[in-house]
Nucleic acid binder design. Structure first.
Lengths: 234, 234
DNA sequence: CGAGTACTTGAAAGATCTCAAATTAGGTGG
DNA sequence: CCACCTAATTTGAGATCTTTCAAGTACTCG
C-alpha cells in the first residue's frame, strides 16, 4: 500500500520485539484500564467493544492480522474500550513512546499511520450511519461484506465462501441487534437468495445486490498516499 | 490544553491565512467530492453527515468553533462525508500539504493533533454504542449533554440553560430517530423532570440523572498529553 | 456419550415509524 | 408593527420492526 524507505521499514520492524499470545475468549485489555500500549495483531482475531450500564455490549470493531489498535492511548493513557480475543491470537505491544519516537524520526511514516487511522475512522462513520439509518437486514449484510473483505485481505484465495468466525450473538453485538433477530435476518437473506449457509460457512451468492442493500464501501481500497512528500525530502 | 512553544504556535497561526464564509444552510463540501483541504471552524456551527440511498441522512458530528474537520483527505483525497453550515460560519481551509509540513517540522504538534483525532474517535465510538445499544430517550439525552458540553467550552458562562441551535429533525438525524419521535422523547424527558424547555431553549434540570441515562462521558476533559517529549528534545 | 453452547422457531410485547392534521414560531414585505 | 407565509413543533392512531420469552434442535468439545 505504501512505499517506505529501508530505514523506515527497519524502524517499524523494530517495534515488534516482544510478542504476546492471547487465548481465545481472553480479555487483552479492559475498558478504562490504565495502559500506554497499543497493539499490532499478528495472527488471530480480536474485537474492540464497550459494555453499557445495562450489561449490553457494543462491538466497535473487528481486528484482523495487520491491524493496529489502541491508538487512543496517545490521548488518554487508558483504554476507552476493551479488547477480547475471538480466536487464539498473537499481538505485538507497542508503547506510545515508541509511536512518538517514530513521529519524530520518520514523519512520512507518521503520515502513513495517520492515513490508516483515517481509514478506520471512515469505516467507523460508515458503521455509525448503518446503525442509525439502516434496517436490521442491511446491517447484517454489511457485516458479512465487511468480514469477507477483510478475510480476503489476509488470504487472497478467499472466494465468496468463508467461515464467519463469529457467533450470531457477536454479529448482534456488532449490529445493535439481538442474536434472535440476527438469526432471522440471516435466514431472510438466505431465502432471498443473497447468501447460502452451511456448516458455519457463508457464501455470498449475489454480491452486487448485497452491496447495494448494505451501502457497502471498501474504504481501505480507496486510499491514496501518492501525494506524500518523497523520501528524499525527509 | 496543550503547551506549545512559540514557533509551534506561530506555525499553527500561519495556517489560517485565508478565511471562507459560509451562509447558514449552505453546503461547504459534498460527499465524495474531490478535495485536499481540511477546515478549522472559526465561528458558527457545521454538521458532518452522509446521505444514504433511501435519502435519509445520518449526522456524524457537530462541529463547533475551534474544531478541525476533514482530516480524512489525508488518506482519500476526497471527502467521505458532507459538511453543511447550520449557522452562518467562518472556516479556515488548510491544505493537506500544510498538515504534512507541520508533521515534518513540528512533530510535537503532530502528536497533539493525533491526540485530538483520538478524542473525536472516542466520541464517535461513544455515539456508535449509543446508536447500537441505547434507547431513543437515552440518545436524545446524550445529544443534549453533548451540545451543552461543547457550547460551554466556547462560552464559559453557559449554565444549564442554552439554545439548541438544532431542529428536532436534526436531532433525529444525529440520533437515528424520526423528528416525531425526538419530539416525544423531549416531552418525556420534560415530563420526567429531567429538562425544561421554552422558546427554543433547553434547561438541564437533573444533570446527574441525565448523565446516567445517557452513559455520558466528556472525552475531551480526559485528555492527558503530559507524557509528550518536551520541546527541548525536538 | 454428555453437557454446555449455539442455533432455530413461534408468539406476544414493546419500541419506533408512518401518515395525517392541527398548532406554534419565525421571518419578510408592506 | 401587522399580516402572511413557510418551517418547525406537537399530537393521535395505526402499521411495522425488533425484542423478549420460551422451547426445541443441532453442534462441539472433552
Amino acid at each position: 500500500m505504501m512505499i517506505l524507505t529501508a530505514p523506515e521499514r527497519a524502524a517499524l520492524d523494530q517495534l515488534g520485539e516482544r510478542e504476546r499470545s492471547v487465548r481465545k475468549g481472553m480479555t487483552l485489555v479492559r475498558e478504562n484500564e490504565r495502559s500506554t500500549e497499543l497493539y499490532a495483531l499478528k495472527s488471530g482475531m480480536l474485537i474492540a467493544f464497550v459494555l453499557l450500564d445495562d450489561g449490553s455490549r457494543q462491538i466497535l470493531r473487528f481486528i484482523f492480522p495487520g491491524d493496529l489498535t489502541g491508538m487512543a492511548v496517545i490521548a488518554f493513557g487508558k483504554a476507552p474500550h476493551a479488547l477480547l480475543a475471538l480466536a487464539d491470537s498473537v499481538v505485538v505491544p507497542i508503547d506510545r513512546t515508541q509511536v512518538a519516537d517514530i513521529v519524530f524520526r520518520f514523519p512520512r511514516v507518521a503520515l502513513a499511520l495517520a492515513a490508516l487511522e483515517q481509514v478506520e475512522r471512515a469505516t467507523l462513520t460508515d458503521r455509525l450511519a448503518g446503525l442509525g439509518r439502516m434496517s436490521a437486514r442491511a446491517r447484517v449484510a454489511a457485516v458479512l461484506l465487511d468480514l469477507r473483505d477483510r478475510i480476503r485481505r489476509q488470504d487472497e484465495n478467499t472466494g465468496d465462501t468463508f467461515a464467519l468466525g463469529l457467533t450470531q450473538e457477536e454479529i448482534g453485538d456488532a449490529t445493535g441487534l439481538t442474536a434472535v433477530h440476527v438469526n432471522r435476518m440471516l435466514r431472510q437473506l438466505e431465502e432471498q437468495g443473497l447468501i447460502a449457509r452451511s456448516g458455519g460457512r457463508v457464501t455470498l451468492l449475489d454480491e452486487a445486490r448485497l452491496m447495494r442493500s448494505a451501502n457497502h464501501v471498501d474504504r481501505l481500497a480507496a486510499v491514496d498516499l501518492s501525494w506524500l512528500p518523497g523520501p528524499s525530502e525527509a
